[in-house]
Design a protein around this nucleic acid. Sequence first.
DNA 1: CGCATGGTTCGTTCCTCATCGAAGCATCCT
DNA 2: AGGATGCTTCGATGAGGAACGAACCATGCG
Lengths: 224, 224
Amino acid sequence: MREGPDIARIASLVGDPARANMLSALMGGTALTASELALEAGVSLPTASSHLSKLMEGGLLTLASQGRHRYYGLAGPQVAGMIEAITGVAAAVGPQRVRPGPRDAAMRVARVCYDHLAGEQAVAMLDRLVARQVLLRNDEEIRLGPSAASHFAAIGIDVEGKARRPVCRACLDWSVRRSHLAGTLGAAILDKILAEKWARREKDSRAVIFSPTGKQAFEKTFLA
Amino acid sequence: MREGPDIARIASLVGDPARANMLSALMGGTALTASELALEAGVSLPTASSHLSKLMEGGLLTLASQGRHRYYGLAGPQVAGMIEAITGVAAAVGPQRVRPGPRDAAMRVARVCYDHLAGEQAVAMLDRLVARQVLLRNDEEIRLGPSAASHFAAIGIDVEGKARRPVCRACLDWSVRRSHLAGTLGAAILDKILAEKWARREKDSRAVIFSPTGKQAFEKTFLA
DNA sequence: CGCATGGTTCGTTCCTCATCGAAGCATCCT
DNA sequence: AGGATGCTTCGATGAGGAACGAACCATGCG
């Protein structure tokens, strides 16, 4: 009988399909209401409410009440990192997805993963940044190259992260079997893309849709 | 209803207390037999066996049969990383451990965490390496400093990792609330400590006991 | 070969927990 | 105020799965 942190308690919170779906949905980075999450999880509103209070009690979610709406969001990067880790194992281990899911074609091209960009576009971007040695990669480990600071400064992104998170991290993509860029840099790049209106987020989805000109600008900036 | 990797399946495997205890025990890095794991989890042998076959089916464990013994071990660094992530959240979230557990004093000083050193000694070592700028740290992110290669080469450790894992990573310590060094470098350092016989592993425990002279050598090498 | 040890399989019991309908509370709109 | 929307609580139902004892295979030893 060992002690230590109650890992079973946390894992079992994620271990229910309905709750897992909710958490996955929240990996989109935006907070969602109870009814949206109920829809996402495929359960009735009372059931969802019950799950949400459990997740709250477990400290995995934060709650922001705005009028009659109650927005639930992931409690922080550490929780998001845990979900990522579990998703990675599940993807590696599962024979799953008999059909490699053209489920939502746009989702495979580009989507939001908690607070950074994922999907084929994101994978291509990381590959290119590594090829140009702006970033240096050693499998799962990613760090800034010598030219990184000036390179990103030219785009208007400050890489001197003072935040409580790594500047760059590899995040395994479940659709492709490759990694994309997470961390504060990944988040900053997504911010940039949305701020410049190169792309917009699909309503009620994690998909990110690039406009024709936005795609050009993105490729010019990150895939050149 | 979303698809993607079956994260609930994986999480629910970890979500049972008995299985969570087994996995935690295996974080010690050494493979264990079914009966050892039954003891560790506090369940009967049949129950343990049932859990183990579920973990096997889930792809979380590997099995090595040796005569009439069957050694179960974690399936790989990715699985270990997931357990670490869950443990980190559990430690951060839990009010737990009413008594901050002098449970096993030696465990708090130094213990094995999957394949690297954890505990107060390990935390001190990471702090010192960062202070000396052998390693550069940005909260959760750790990378090699300019002098790292020569510094570790002098000790007989090659930091040029070709492995499928990051060279260095921060791993949150559940006893202290600080991080210690994981990754291939962390593993190499633990190897070194054991190879030099500076310390030995306590039987049936994750505790690592330094000999008086070994402790001196360790401090001279890493805490100077 | 026979016995002991290490492990798994089977069958049963039991309890937790997910689920939903109905009813209740809160907030906003007109 | 009255009604509508968003969400939570309550209570009853039901299913999954964790637990163990007993019996069953496999390996090693004398």
